[in-house]
Amino acid sequence: MGIFTRFRDIVSANINAMLDRAEDPEKLIKLMIREMEDTLVELKSSCAGTIASQKKVSRLLEETCDKEAFWDQKAALAVSRGRDDLARQALLEKRRFSQRCEAVEQELTELKSIVAQYQDDIQELENKLKSAREKQRMLVQRHIRAQRKKKAHQEIRRVDSAQVVQRFDEMESNIERMEAEADLVNFGRKSDIEAAFEELSADDEIEQQLTELKSSQTRPKDDTVSH
């Protein structure tokens, strides 16, 4: 594909539409930018070559026109000296260089037009390339934001899961602590029925001690002496 064909295809392309249809917009925009950059390099190189040719032809035109003026002066000199034969030859040379001058001037005009077209094309392609790079920057930023958003959502889900587990662990620890506190409250204390039976046992012991005390006081004194 020639440089001009590629250039026309590029500048006429609808970047947004192409990216909307692309499966991988970032990859496509990279390829488009690379193609634009390569084409731009070729355009500038061709333009530089044409400018060089233009300068060369411009010098040639100046030399040719100088030759035309030179033979015009020689023809006038020959006429002044009565040398019509030399004047005719000088006029023939003048006409030859005059015709050459017209041809070179036409070539120079065409080269100037080509250079101007190159410069317009370069400017147009640079604008297109600038737009493509801006589009690439936006796509990259969108991609970065999408990645960050995805990572944030993953982090949120991870944190939420960890918090749920942590809350259950805390609830379980609280319940176990409450159970332990309840056990400590009753630790060492007897139940009501156990306390009642112990009280009964204590009453029986007191009654027995009381009976023995009374019995010892009612015994005869002689019995006490005899012992």
Rank of each mutant, 00 (worst) to 15 (best):
151 K>E: 15
112 K>A: 01
143 H>C: 08
59 R>Y: 14
153 H>A: 07
141 Q>E: 09
85 D>C: 04
127 N>W: 02
131 S>A: 14
105 E>F: 01
68 E>Q: 11
72 D>Q: 12
121 D>A: 15
57 V>L: 11
42 E>L: 03
89 Q>W: 01
144 I>K: 14
141 Q>C: 02
119 Q>E: 15
102 E>F: 06
137 R>G: 10
86 L>A: 07
60 L>S: 14
72 D>Y: 05
50 T>E: 11
75 A>N: 11
49 G>A: 09
39 T>P: 08
95 R>N: 04
118 Y>N: 13
148 R>Q: 03
117 Q>Y: 11
45 S>R: 15
80 S>G: 15
133 R>Q: 12
95 R>E: 12
148 R>V: 00
47 C>I: 05
85 D>H: 03
107 E>W: 02
117 Q>M: 12
61 L>A: 03
75 A>Y: 08
72 D>P: 00
85 D>G: 05
73 Q>L: 04
81 R>V: 09
77 L>C: 06
116 A>M: 15
70 F>C: 02
122 I>A: 06
46 S>I: 04
124 E>L: 09
112 K>I: 02
111 L>M: 11
111 L>F: 07
124 E>N: 13
80 S>P: 01
90 A>N: 08
93 E>F: 06
94 K>Q: 11
59 R>L: 13
144 I>F: 06
107 E>A: 10
92 L>Y: 03
42 E>Q: 02
81 R>Q: 11
100 R>F: 05
114 I>M: 11
45 S>D: 14
66 D>G: 03
59 R>T: 14
149 K>P: 00
85 D>P: 08
110 E>M: 04
55 K>E: 10
132 A>C: 12
43 L>K: 10
113 S>I: 04
127 N>D: 12
105 E>C: 02
96 R>D: 06
140 V>Q: 13
